[in-house]
């Protein structure tokens, strides 16, 4: 499960099982299927997004230091290019 949260106070913006994480050079490209209505709200906070890939015994925290968040309206899809990744146990 992927969770998109606000970096200030951890408000949950969106969670989904419909996502992909692909390594690309020194980044991780995260593609998320998301309805436009949610995407528009989340884009207001694009400088302050934390993404968590939640598994049974661990979480992986990603973020984009240059706020690289793009919404593809035709596909209802977020593409977030993240350059920070931290894995920690839960």
């Amino acid at each position: 499960m992927l969770m998109i949260r606000h970096a200030i106070g951890s408000r949950l913006f969106y969670q989904t099982d419909d996502y992909k994480i692909q390594p690309h050079e020194d980044k991780w490209i995260i593609s998320i299927s998301i309805p436009e209505i949610h995407a528009k709200e989340i884009l207001k906070f694009k400088e302050e997004l934390n993404l968590f890939d939640v598994e049974e015994n661990q979480k992986t925290w990603y973020y984009s230091s240059d706020d690289h968040v793009v919404f593809n309206k035709a596909k209802d899809q977020f593409i977030i290019s993240t350059d920070h990744k931290t894995v920690y146990p839960v």
Binding site: A7, N50, W61, Y63, Y88, P89, V90
Partner: peptide, 8 residues
């Protein structure tokens, strides 16, 4: 519990 922060 354990949680992350950045840029603050």
């Amino acid at each position: 519990g354990i949680h992350p922060h950045r840029e603050m």
